[in-house]
């Protein structure tokens, strides 16, 4: 297809600035992580003159990064697992059954996911503190269990909504054929729908994990020094007197690489899942 000159110019006008805008911060992160501390204190050097891997070693001892890492992995994985499993059943019901209360249920799911997290943070904080006070020990407030519960506030509705959209796209003739062959509704879910919805399920899991991994609002109030996640713990590199910018960048790189790689591998599932949910 022949393109007009004006469109080819437009292409460069769009792509070049956007590529620079996107890439420069990433470049800053990678190069600063490879510099000794004195080189990130003064003017920014485009070419690192003294390459070192020390920030990647020191970052584990400046703050207890490994503990934060474990907390993030545990909390995010469990919240993701819960919401995906619950969402599989719920979205199957929404997509394949017409039952009383379906509209109310979908309405609640859809509306809660547009509400801001702070709306849930304040009451959950009060509920957690008061439950723990009556129990006499820390069960929910500043514990991993409590944090998992709060993460479900955003992973669960999105998972249900997105997966229901995805399942609506799977032809009904598939599971109806299975039912004619004598499979029960649950059998159809496990044998027909689950394999067909695998891209959608992967997308939901990736998305839940990503949002949990980057979550700050709940983690900033509902964790303590033992249960702190990466999102809050990363702020500890800045002390009163010193900011270890090279170690901050090294840590940012290390916590990002697994998530970015996972995202890039699974992005085609995410795209199909997202658009299936959005366009219905």
């Amino acid at each position: 297809m022949r393109e007009q000159l004006s469109f080819r110019i437009f292409r460069w006008v769009v792509l070049v600035p956007l590529a620079i805008f996107t890439a420069v911060p990433l470049y800053v992160m990678v190069t600063s992580a490879l510099k000794p501390l004195q080189d990130v204190r003064g003017d920014f050097q485009w070419w690192p003159t003294n390459l070192t891997f020390e920030p990647f070693v020191d970052m584990w001892s400046t703050v207890p990064l490994a503990d934060y890492f474990v907390n993030s992995v545990v909390v995010t994985s469990i919240a993701t697992l819960f919401s995906v499993v619950i969402a599989i059943f719920a979205s199957y019901a929404i997509s394949r059954y017409r039952f009383r209360g379906r509209g109310v249920f979908s309405g609640v799911v859809l509306s809660t996911q547009m509400f801001p997290g702070v709306l849930f943070l304040l009451p959950l904080f009060i509920i957690f503190v008061n439950i723990d006070r009556s129990l006499g020990f820390s069960f929910l407030y500043q514990t991993r269990i409590g944090l998992i519960v709060t993460y479900l506030t955003f992973t669960l509705p999105f998972s249900i909504w997105m997966l229901a959209g995805y399942m609506n796209g799977i032809p009904r003739s598939l599971d109806e054929a299975a039912k004619v062959d004598g499979t029960t509704a649950i059998g159809a879910l496990f044998r027909i729908i689950l394999p067909a919805a695998r891209p959608g399920i992967i997308a939901v899991a990736v998305y839940s994990f990503m949002t949990g991994w980057g979550e700050i609002l709940f983690a900033s109030q509902l964790t303590n020094s033992d249960t702190r996640t990466l999102s809050v713990g990363m702020q500890s590199y800045a002390t009163e007197t010193n900011v270890y910018w090279n170690e901050v960048m090294a840590a940012a790189l290390v916590v990002s690489v697994p998530i970015v790689v996972g995202f890039l591998i699974l992005q085609r599932y995410l795209v199909s899942g997202l658009t299936a949910g959005a366009v219905k």
């Binding site: 719920a90 959950l124 509920i127 479900l152």
Partner: peptide, 23 residues
């Protein structure tokens, strides 16, 4: 069947959304 399928979701929606919102 549909009610059994959404039961876990309903319980968790109550726990993490509906009750906190009422509170």
């Amino acid at each position: 069947a549909p009610y059994l399928l959404i039961l876990p979701a309903v319980l968790f929606e109550l726990l993490v959304h509906v009750i906190p919102m009422i509170v």
